[in-house]
Amino acid sequence: MSLDAVDITAGYSGTSDVIVRESFSIPAGSLVGLAGPSGSGKSTLARVLALLLEPRAGVVSIDGREVKGVGLAVSSEIRRQVAMLFQSPRAATDPRMTLRAIIEQPAAIVRRRIVVEELAERVGLTVDLLDRRPHQVSDGQLQRACVARALAQEPQYLICDEATAMLDAATTASIMRLVQSEARDAGMGVLMISHDAELLAAIGAVAGQRP
């Protein structure tokens, strides 16, 4: 059981290839780390794995099943299996929405009612913050809401793309512990992407694996 990208070549519209024939694997229940400098293609690979960017060549598969297409072209049952936590929580959320509405977003994918208060408690958000909008909370509080949104999706795999890069040291440690705990309890496969190899080592992330 794993999320695999095999011989992936990918880039963005109007650009040359950012990654060429890259392969990567996230085993179920494992915490995998991927380190590298800015511009090395980490985020591009993350978007391919998260089914947000269609590769120009290569195959993405979930638990041995090849995935065709990206985004809304993929069935909700497949989409819900992979969640992504972005570097900037402000860029990843609609400033017009409350934290409650942000956390509830996966409801359409999982097709069930989401108990926001329970998720908020799990990620360390107090109930009084749920009716605030992004500009009314800190970066750390907003990223916790994004973690709750990802958990609401009940994914099998979680992609964290520099998810703590914009947070202070104390908040970084707290978010990392939270993701580790949730991943362990749910048996999720997690990819932690960072330019900071020491940070990945500190949380026990194993080096990125080739399928």
Results as ranks from 00 to 15, higher is better:
196 D>G: 00
137 V>A: 12
198 E>P: 01
48 V>L: 10
45 L>Y: 02
154 E>Y: 03
105 Q>N: 05
93 T>D: 08
121 E>V: 15
63 D>L: 06
13 S>M: 07
135 H>T: 09
192 M>K: 02
16 S>A: 11
116 V>K: 06
167 L>T: 03
61 S>G: 02
39 G>L: 08
157 Y>C: 03
118 E>D: 14
62 I>G: 03
170 A>D: 12
151 L>D: 08
163 A>D: 00
87 Q>Y: 14
25 S>G: 11
135 H>I: 05
207 A>F: 06
36 G>R: 00
183 A>T: 02
115 V>L: 15
54 E>K: 13
37 P>K: 07
124 G>M: 09
142 L>V: 02
197 A>R: 13
208 G>T: 10
64 G>Y: 03
148 A>K: 06
141 Q>V: 08
59 V>K: 05
100 R>H: 07
61 S>C: 01
188 M>T: 08
158 L>F: 03
109 I>A: 14
52 L>S: 00
110 V>E: 08
48 V>P: 00
55 P>R: 06
20 V>S: 12
104 E>P: 00
53 L>V: 09
92 A>T: 09
197 A>W: 01
139 D>Q: 13
189 G>E: 05
137 V>F: 12
128 D>Q: 12
120 A>M: 09
21 R>K: 13
6 V>E: 10
210 R>P: 00
76 S>K: 15
68 K>M: 12
202 A>V: 01
43 S>M: 12
22 E>Y: 06
48 V>G: 02
18 V>L: 14
148 A>N: 07
125 L>I: 02
164 T>I: 15
97 M>D: 07
173 A>V: 11
58 G>S: 05
22 E>C: 14
160 C>L: 10
51 L>D: 03
69 G>W: 11
184 R>Y: 09
203 I>T: 04
152 A>V: 00
155 P>T: 09
13 S>L: 14
185 D>N: 05
21 R>F: 02
110 V>H: 09
85 L>T: 12
154 E>M: 11
77 E>G: 00
65 R>N: 15
115 V>G: 08
14 G>E: 07
115 V>M: 14
131 D>A: 01
65 R>P: 03
122 R>G: 08
165 A>I: 02
178 L>A: 04
